[in-house]
Write a protein that binds this DNA or RNA. Structure first.
Lengths: 179, 179
DNA sequence: CGAATGGGTTCAGTGAACGAACCGACAGTG
DNA sequence: CACTGTCGGTTCGTTCACTGAACCCATTCG
């Protein structure tokens, strides 16, 4: 961890996890990656994070095998950051934090998560309220709630204010004019 | 959050949660509180955290209603910090982080969590592997694993290296000589 | 009396985060 | 060909949180 020292004295898997993803912004970058954000500029405008910090987090997460840097076009060379299996394994932790935030930090219903197969809501333990199965990340659909701002400025927030299956790449629209 | 700015631009319950518990050390303080640590000095020696930071975290967590400051003796005046319902509600997130740390950050089995009623292991979704029920925090027993240091120096680590039910106060032994 | 304990506060030094500026490669426009 | 814009960064000065050590006060033990 970057802040001065790590949690070396802690014999604890929570501390080990926080050494990897406990820095400021890191979990939000992973969250965005699971939501389908892949490009440097999309992370930048959506998070409002300083460029130097974003570069550092993307590099660290890539080194840790949580993201994978992938060239998606050659001229000009452009890379995207795709979340790996190791990264999607953080989804239960993020979902639990999201749940806690909803119930204990703002009380708003900004987004909800639903099971793609049957439409049931994903409950506090990650299982579908309707069919009871433990829903894998790829089968989760993020649905905007009533308290989510309906007219955000940046294209990334706009793309994330529509229902969207997790892990699928984000279509930010005005990226390549040829579309 | 304390580092320069908060995550104000983020319309996201994960960001709201991280504003409250996302600072360095904060989640480890909550973890210790759930493990049964209650006293300033016990947090101090177990976490190896600077005093000023610990004071700040305890004050902030108390203001947020995650811990409750409670006077347990009058002469001399002594307070303890007890985790509230709002604090124990963070357990699913901590358990998920712990799970990720075990599988993706160190591969060691430092501790495991078991269902007090039937002894079954608490699985990745917080349910008991044996009887299938979603195990509430108070019914979780923390069991030291094979890779945990068996002879730690400080009394808090020693108390936590024996099987122990979560939320129950820690007995650190040489605290009050009259016992 | 002197030493130890519990629960802090204060302070100087360091290092990370912040924001703004800059940069290089390329693409499209006039 | 020059101009403008986009993408993915790096560099740099300032600010601010974390760190470790020292200090403090009330009380209690020997």
């Amino acid at each position: 961890m970057a802040l001065g020292k790590d949690y070396a004295s802690q014999e604890c898997s929570i501390a080990r996890a926080l050494e990897v993803v406990g820095e400021r912004w890191t979990l939000l970058v992973v969250r965005d990656a699971i939501y389908g954000v892949r490009r440097y500029n999309d992370f930048l405008v959506h998070l409002g994070i300083p460029r130097a910090v974003l570069s550092d987090r993307l590099r660290t997460l890539t080194e840790q095998g949580i993201l994978e840097k992938r060239r998606y076009q050659e001229t000009p060379p452009r890379d995207e950051y795709v979340v790996t299996e190791r990264g999607t394994a953080l989804w239960p932790a993020l979902r639990a934090l999201s749940q806690w935030g909803r119930e204990h930090a703002d009380a708003g219903r900004l987004r909800s998560f639903r099971h793609a197969d049957c439409g049931g809501e994903v409950g506090p333990y990650g299982t579908c309220a309707d069919c009871g199965t433990a829903v894998p990340v790829a089968d989760v659909v993020m649905v905007p709630g009533p308290e989510l701002d309906t007219s955000p400025q940046d294209p990334v927030s706009r793309a994330l204010s529509r229902p969207k299956r997790l892990l699928e790449p984000l279509e930010t629209g005005p990226a390549r004019l040829a579309d």
